[in-house]
């Protein structure tokens, strides 16, 4: 078991080291997520006034879209000199490779959210400091669920044709529950009289989703990755 986490941690550290040299993923993902935020704001803000509780929706759309970009690029990196095969060749537990990549994606997406959430607060007067723990938990659980499915799909698509198109096609329909729960939970916190109980309900759904899909991904990673 310690070997499992040692390998996962090693891969996570390696991804950080690679990223620290180029800052490519962080800079492009953050920029893209902010661009998403703006585009949706222009679409949904009328005469300076946001339509309904649109802030939570825009936040999660930006997270989901930039997450897809990050997933694609992360695995493109492992494909460039075929290092994913070198990882598969190591005598390590293969699900540990999955966990390592998942941690990297999760870290990157959470980093993006650290910038995205204050911007949403700024643009939409969203009260992010009223229930900070609830909000953080929703973001963490939702991002984990999204990244858990996304990491598996992006990894298995590395060998597929037209992988860039396939990733969002497969990922978005499957992660709709994450988006619904994330948006509704966040909206419950952003509304005039925040409803923490409702946010907790959605959080519970997200945690349940995380448990089921991380387990399922660990279980299917090896068979989908063998050629």
């Amino acid at each position: 078991m310690t070997a499992f986490f040692r390998v996962a941690w090693l891969i996570f550290r390696k991804d950080l080291a690679v990223e620290a040299r180029s800052w490519e993923l962080v800079s492009t993902t953050v920029f893209f997520s902010v661009a998403c935020l703006l585009v949706f704001s222009f679409a949904l803000i009328n005469e300076g006034q946001a339509v309904g509780d649109v802030a939570a929706g825009i936040l999660w759309v930006a997270i989901a879209f930039s997450g897809t970009l990050a997933l694609g690029r992360t695995f493109e990196r492992e494909r460039q000199t075929d290092t994913l095969r070198a990882l598969m060749l190591a005598p390590a537990d293969r699900p540990a490779l999955y966990v390592g990549k998942l941690l990297g994606i999760l870290f990157l997406m959470l980093l993006t959210e650290v910038i995205l959430v204050p911007l949403v607060a700024l643009f939409f007067q969203a009260p992010i400091v009223d229930w900070p723990l609830h909000l953080a938990a929703l973001l963490l659980a939702g991002t984990l669920g999204y990244a858990a499915v996304g990491t598996l799909f992006a990894a298995m698509l590395v060998r597929a044709r037209s992988r860039d198109v396939m990733l969002p096609i497969l990922l978005y329909p499957i992660t709709v529950p994450v988006i619904i729960a994330g948006v509704r939970g966040t909206a419950a916190l952003f509304q005039e009289t925040p409803d923490a109980a409702l946010a907790q309900f959605w959080l519970a759904l997200l945690v349940f989703f995380d448990v089921v899909f991380v387990t399922l991904a660990l279980w299917t990673f090896e068979p989908v990755m063998t050629e």
Partner: peptide, 14 residues
């Protein structure tokens, strides 16, 4: 088993 593949399995940034 050790494999030197056609692609070199190295991380160029490292």
């Amino acid at each position: 088993v050790g494999l030197l593949g056609h692609d070199l399995y190295l991380y160029p940034e490292l």
